[in-house]
Amino acid sequence: MKLKRGYFEDIRIFRNRASRFWTFLFILVLALLPFFIKAYYLSVINLMALNVIVALGLNVLVGNTGQISLGHAGFVAIGAYSGALLMQLGLPFVPALLLAALLTALIGAFLGIPSLRLEGPYLSIVTLGFGLAVMVIIGRMDVFGGRTGMSVPKLKLGWTGLPYDTALYYVFTITTVVLVIITIILLKSRIGRAFQAIRDSDIAASVIGINVSHYKTFSFAISAFYAGIAGCLWGLYLQFVTPGTFSFMMSIIFLATIVLGGLGSVTGSVLGAIVMTYLGLQLENIVGVPVLGDVIVAFSDSLMNTSGIANIKWVLTGLILIGVILFEPMGLNGLWLRVKRYWRLWPF
């Protein structure tokens, strides 16, 4: 007996009713949340949303195409500054957002060009240099306020009848949900498959007719596009941007986010960004924990040589990453898959 397949099920966003049910429930919760929680928590979720957007894009590049970027904060900076400038010039939000993202994508495509010739460590260095150069260059441009930074105009959201924070929360979450869906579709398509082919074997990819340079450049552009959107929103979130905001450390944290979440996976990008944002805000509190906190501070002071709390955060982040790589190389997505297998189609 042969099973007649429709094949459409292979490209649907939701594999089954359970996953659709949970997704809609999650979106419903997101939509109602502002009526139940304090503005501070909304702003935490906003920050998570920003990190989700960057992680989605970075994971297309790193987890799916097998390229590397140690300079993603540079793209976020370009998105933030160009978005801010466009809005200052009076452009409405949506066109400003898209224009800023497209500009960032264009620069991403240019940065993709060295990726055609360089691999691994060499590409890392080029992208690292890019991230640093963006900070320096922006710091010298007067339109962007130089080293002191520039303020970002608030959105005109009065028409929604909602408090500004709440309205901004909706802007962030809607953008993020849309981008999550777009990423899922993209990765199921011929384009996503071509990216993954290049990741697994660029030789095989080329002999089956994939224009490897074209797709590598394209992947950089897409990845930068996401970072550009996140950047533009980041400006709105902070209301004031300085070159120092988009530091090298930020680029490293982005990479750590997708490793923690799971390379190549959309679920991983989302989970990684949520957890990493939370850790970024909470990890320093470990100093207050009796005994353990003291030990960590002593460890940090004696071996890591810079004093202060920020340092402890990085040390712990590093330890967590080592743990992930050792015990769950598929990251949070790996955990998630196991939990999912356990619960399967609950509640159906």
């Binding site: 993209l186 398509s189 011929r190 384009i191 498959r193 071509a194 993954q196 082919a197 990741r199 697994d200 074997s201 030789i203 095989a204 990819a205 002999v207 089956i208 007719g209 994939i210 190549g264």
Partner: peptide, 24 residues
Amino acid sequence: ELFRYLTAVDNLLLGRHIHMQASL
């Protein structure tokens, strides 16, 4: 030279890449 982390079906679908043209 296969795409090791993709499924058999995805490997074969990649063989169809040159015949597919849907734009972004």
